[in-house]
Amino acid sequence: MIQALKLSKTYNGSTAVNALDLHINKSEIYCLLGANGAGKTTTINLFLNLTAPSSGIAKIAGLDVTTNPLETKQKLTYIPENLMLYPKLTGVENLQFFCGLSGIKLNDKEAEIYLKESGLQEDARHKRVENYSKGMRQKVGIALAIARSSEVLLLDEPTSGLDPAASNDFANLLTDMKERGAAILMATHDLFRAKETGTRIGIMNKGRLVEELKAEDITHSDLEKIYLNHMKE
């Protein structure tokens, strides 16, 4: 579902992503670990077609994102580190608006059902988003992915800044999305959450994918050691 073929991006002579090969299947959560500047966010931007690749191909559901920007975007939901919804609108209204952009018309009841599925408390759904915590906003993002039946989720450090309980809630939602068949690429600094939630883990350093691991094959401490070793390179 998510595929990178020798994908590279160079900004002013400095390589942000270097010949990345990646293949993420349906019902898989791929956690991309790496220090700041390792190329995680650029990788996501390449899949979102927010930046053009210097070489190589980024594919979503088998389609090249640069030649099929609209089709590929319809198949994915992107949740950034700080999902900035419209503060003057309620959770329901935000969901209706963003679904409307994809041509999905939701009435209040339908929107409430999706928000319920994403775990947003009942009393918050009709409150303005300006009063929401970050965790609550991320839940609206997940509700959007559910409502749009997204085949692909691209997450850029979605749990950063969340308290452990909220982070755990979010991980459960991702697992739920995975079970619905979604392919998920999550860039994160959170080794613990990557090991707990991920199906596979990739480590990026200086734009290169330097290690790929199956989450079930390693322990938390192994992951930490491997990660730190790569960061020393």
């Binding site: 979102l48 419209y86 952009l101 994809s102 691209l154």
Partner: peptide, 13 residues
């Protein structure tokens, strides 16, 4: 400024 632009672009806007 709020980052909403990227989010909207990611929606195909």
């Amino acid at each position: 400024e709020s980052g909403m632009y990227r989010f909207l672009k990611s929606q195909g806007v």
